[in-house]
Design a protein around this nucleic acid. Structure first.
Lengths: 409, 409
DNA sequence: GAAATAAGTCAAGACAATTGACTTAATAAG
DNA sequence: CTTATTAAGTCAATTGTCTTGACTTATTTC
């Protein structure tokens, strides 16, 4: 009789939401600008001096900000600048990448305080989570040694692994990522660690790292292309990471760059030509080889012909990807990052130049069209750790809104 | 001495911002769900019954919502549903498209109440604005006849014209769009009409129309591909139109789909193969011909061989564009719209199928991967008119924040 | 007819920002 | 050296909007 169609509506907000937003705005402003006085903050955020004063007092009591020595800068009472207190918050990051897993602990300003690494046992998520929980625990204990305050100030666990999620990926893949992608990982880890857990794909994590402490720091419109075992893009739009309807936005590895001509190999998606997986295939190397990173560095330094061939192919694809992303997003910059040695990354980004013409070619640019970001194999793990910091302290639309009684996903 | 670097920070908010947001949320909920009781609204927005009651009372007094007859739906007191009042607000839209200009007047629910059309005189913006101001005035008077309340309830003027903006476009283009794109149009029209003016490109306007009253109604993640004289995409991300760093996001016409192989013609951007401009070239027709629309319809009905050739080429490009957009955005749906006869649009969308494989191929889909939107030549003008409505009444992050003293652009 | 359920109101309370006057501490001008 | 000016920051009262919890009203179910 009554069809009981669910009502679709956005969430409302109240003073609490506004207040939470204002605190985030203060922290964000201090993060981006280094140090600011209360008066600076009032001007920059359009709030009154008094409101800022109250909020800063609060944040100081909470141990998130601290004052510096007063500075005289002209007429009037000297101002007292404030800065973020690194020990104000901590977070753990977890990266799952086929055969191995890494953990990282960071503080409020993104400094790395502990790290751990382990091989994942064969047998998929059920057995893997044991290893993971052990590794997380080890990292937490390590962190507690360096920073005893961390016990009460851990804001969450960020998890990064290759996407896409919720899709029927190749069931024959040897790393059983499909199994991982279907496994209720967040829930299991939330129970196992008692922490707030959120999952993102590895390129989103890389972008989160670039935003917090890397090339995209302080930028509101940036695209991070992440070249790892696969390839993906982390989309920072209006200052927030964009997830898409199903959390799979930015999975550009699946783009069919030449869908209807050429050999079957050429018809394959972008990922088959611009990724470490494809490089390993050319080099006939096992991607699981723990020495791979060093080997790639050697190959790159030795100007190996196969490396050069891969670079040509990958650069061709990336050049087009850059042009497409610039055209679609009109970003302030594009950051190329990835889990490869800096030497190799340098060769790759050089080979991508000169860039194709696009609307990004404008006279007044403050950031380069394409720049190199993190090429640390730990970058994704750092980004995973940065996610809870960002989720907890960065201003965002969703942070203002009242939360629904029962979560939807 | 003091380098005086500008402080970068996001804006704070206060009760006023929260309240404004809540009112917008109510209006949005009523727009999407048709009619809702106060209790429904309270549940859907996570606000208290009391808060909703106060807000609805306000909105009713402001003439934006009205109650309907009470309905019994089970145990308990019958509920009183509320609906939007179409006469609650009005807006004017202006489309500038090379040789001509169109105006539209809409009400709060997006119904068209008046329209006007005129040819633009040669001579560029200086002379053109005279015609435009005259046309807007004519439309306002027409609107006032149909809806006298409109005089006090006009919320703004939305302007749509081809992008990209701020780029040195081809100076030889015969329509002098480059001149228009550099002309301070918003300022001139704001002074000339006394209205709040905002400018967007035509594909963004088409997307705004689809969001308010079209295929993207109530969707938070949707991409609208607009095929007009050129081609572009309007990006609806998290319920808001995405503009990019310089307002040029979605200008996909500039994508070099085959940048390095083939003839010079094949190397040309997407726009040269999938646009009405390219179709006119094939048909050897003047794009400025006022009868073009009817002719295209005839050609399509007659299965003209040149039309078929264009459709094959355009469909090839669009098939790839759809796959790229799906892969990058992971949207709920993609809407194909454009200023062409429905028959032709139907042929085109059919030719695009079957779609290329992508992450959008998931078992549970509520909306089709690709669907047909407005194919009315007035769609962009309607979207232009919808923009002030959306700007004034849709929930958005920026609407919550306090405004800075002096705008930035 | 009584109990249960749901919509909606009333009145008091809480909270976070605003307002405007005030204090403090520096430089600039005479 | 004194006074005016400027700017940072505080104090105390006010404001506006949402929340809370009790209450009223209207309907169905038992």
């Amino acid at each position: 009789m009554n069809e009981m169609r669910p009502i679709r509506a956005k969430s409302g907000t109240n003073q609490e939401g506004a207040s939470a937003h204002n605190r985030r705005v203060m922290i964000d402003a201090l993060r981006v600008n280094g140090q600011l006085s209360r008066a600076d903050l009032a001007r920059a955020t359009a709030l009154t001096k008094q409101a800022v004063s109250n909020i800063i007092e609060d944040l100081e009591r909470d141990g998130l900000v601290a004052s510096l020595a007063a500075v005289r800068k002209g007429r009037g009472q000297p101002s007292t600048p404030y800065r973020l207190v690194p020990e104000g918050a901590f977070a753990i990051g977890l990266q799952i990448d086929r055969h191995m897993t890494r953990t990282i602990a960071v503080d409020l300003v993104g400094a790395v305080l502990a790290r751990g690494e382990a091989n994942l046992p064969a047998g998929g998520p059920e057995r893997g989570t044991e290893t993971i929980l052990w590794l997380i625990d080890k990292t937490r204990r390590e962190l507690a040694e360096v920073a005893p305050q961390s016990k009460d100030r851990l804001v969450g666990l960020g998890v990064a692994m290759p996407g896409p999620f919720g899709i029927d990926t190749d069931p024959a893949d040897p790393w059983m990522m499909a199994l991982w992608q279907r496994f209720p990982l967040s829930e299991t880890l939330a129970i196992g660690t008692g922490l707030d857990v959120r999952l993102q794909n590895d390129s989103a994590a890389a972008a989160t790292a670039e935003k917090l402490v890397g090339a995209a720091h302080g930028l509101d419109q940036a695209i991070c292309i992440y070249v790892g075992y696969g390839i993906g893009a982390g989309l920072i739009l209006d200052g927030e990471l964009y997830r898409g309807a199903n959390g799979n936005a930015g999975e550009i590895g699946m783009i069919l760059s030449r869908p209807e001509n050429g050999t079957e190999d050429q018809r394959a998606p972008l990922e088959h030509r611009a990724s470490i997986a494809s490089l390993c295939k050319i080099l006939d190397r096992d991607p699981a080889d723990p020495e791979l990173y060093r080997h790639l560095d050697d190959f790159a330094a030795a100007s190996d012909a196969r490396i050069a061939a891969w670079i040509t192919e990958a650069a061709y694809e990336l050049r087009r990807a850059v042009q497409i992303l610039e055209t679609i997003f009109d970003p302030q910059t594009i950051v190329l990052c990835g889990g490869m040695p800096p030497g190799l990354a340098r060769l790759l980004i050089d080979a991508i130049h000169p860039l194709l013409p696009s609307i990004a070619e404008r006279r007044t640019r403050s950031a380069p069209r394409l720049q190199l970001g993190f090429t640390d194999p730990w970058a994704v793990a750092i980004g995973a750790a940065a996610e809870p910091i960002s989720r907890t302290f960065d201003p965002s639309f969703s942070a203002i809104l009242k939360t629904r009684s029962v979560g939807s996903g």
